[in-house]
């Protein structure tokens, strides 16, 4: 990319019925994922950036230029939705060339541009096809080609891999990553899928209840949740109060508050500052692991263990280091 591409949001707020989004402050300068559960406000934020919803407060900047009041058709942002939203009354070629009709280009130029990008995306042989007859991967390519042929500076992707099953999703992600080298624009992806979020960008923000609750490098965001809600959203099962830690004879890092104990920090190898023995209350078979619920003096902990682990009886010994607890707000 020759110029530095960026999207910035400053104090963006929007109220829709009972739901309030913001204030959102965000700076995006490299491939970025906005992660959040359903109802967090991801789509509202997507539509605010794209210009379909006007924020009640705040400003939006694209490459340094304020675009808050700019109409969607003037923003030069490409968008790809979850289900691709290919125009059903147009064939592949007409879909890809749709946006070029609104630019000052001759029919020949349009034709050349469309064929060029179609070849690049390996869909040149599908030009006259009905979009309904395409596979998921082909639809994705057409949707991307349609968004990119007009040369957007920013590409917004709203849950682009969610419309298919697990296997298809992995394949679509793989295909998308192979197309990435052609994307001369800043990619912002919105998803509720954590695995997808982790895979697609190094910079991540978590949107929860209309607010950005975490923002930064993906390992930092995933590994160090800041609040109880985010820890729960990210799948931390063991969230313990300081009282519960004291009951377990673990010295809490602070006298009150909550702490997340990551699954891998419940040590079964005999190490750990505090060694504990608990009763296994329940076993649950997962695909590759066994989940056990351990009761230690009334405090319940969940631990996912390798399926080959040999249980020696109804009790289990494990260790915990208090400095590996994650303090939560």
């Amino acid at each position: 990319m020759d110029e530095e591409l960026s999207v910035s949001l400053r104090g963006v707020e929007k109220t829709l019925g009972q739901f309030h989004l913001g204030p959102i402050d965000l700076d995006v300068k490299e491939p970025f994922v906005l992660l959040g559960p359903s109802g967090a406000g991801k789509t509202t934020l997507f539509e605010i950036i794209a210009g379909f919803i006007r924020p009640d407060k705040g400003k939006i900047y694209c490459n340094g230029e304020e675009i808050t009041g700019k109409k969607p058709e003037k923003r030069n942002l490409g968008i790809v939705y979850q289900d691709y939203q290919l125009f059903p009354h147009l064939n592949v070629m007409e879909n890809i060339g749709f946006g070029l009709k609104f630019r000052r280009m001759s029919g020949r130029e349009i034709d050349e541009r469309v064929r060029g990008i179609a070849e690049m995306f390996n869909i040149g042989h599908l030009m006259q096809h009905n979009v309904r007859s395409l596979s998921g991967g082909e639809k994705q390519r057409v949707a991307l080609a349609r968004a990119l042929v007009v040369g957007p500076k920013i590409l917004l992707l709203d849950e682009p891999f969610s419309a298919v099953d697990e296997e298809g999703r992995a394949k679509l992600r793989e295909e998308f990553n192979s197309l990435r080298k052609h994307l001369d624009c800043l990619v912002i992806l919105i998803t509720h899928n954590q695995e997808e979020a982790y895979e697609m960008a190094e910079k991540i923000a978590i949107l929860y209840g209309g607010r950005i609750m975490a923002h930064g490098e993906r390992d930092e965001v995933f590994g160090r949740p800041k609040t109880v809600k985010i820890a729960r959203f990210l799948g931390f099962k063991n969230i313990l109060s300081s009282k519960e830690l004291i009951a377990l004879n673990i010295e809490p890092p602070s006298s009150n508050g909550f702490f997340a104990l990551p699954n891998e920090k419940i040590r079964l190898d005999g190490t750990g500052g505090t060694l504990l023995r608990g009763t296994i209350e329940r076993y649950e078979s997962l695909r590759n692991q066994t989940k056990v619920v351990i009761n230690v003096g009334g405090v319940r902990l969940e631990k996912e263990i390798d399926r080959n682990f040999e249980f020696t009886g109804p009790e289990i010994d494990f260790g915990v280091n208090s400095n590996e607890l994650l303090p939560l707000e």
């Binding site: 794209a50 058709e73 007009v150």
Partner: peptide, 27 residues
């Protein structure tokens, strides 16, 4: 039909009238 189709058209540079004539009306 999904209003997102109209939003895609707008993101591609079609104003409201053109979006209506080239997407909403034919669909």
């Amino acid at each position: 039909f999904d209003p997102k189709l109209e939003r895609v058209a707008m993101s591609l540079g079609a104003g409201r009238f053109r979006t209506f004539l080239s997407v909403s009306l034919p669909l």
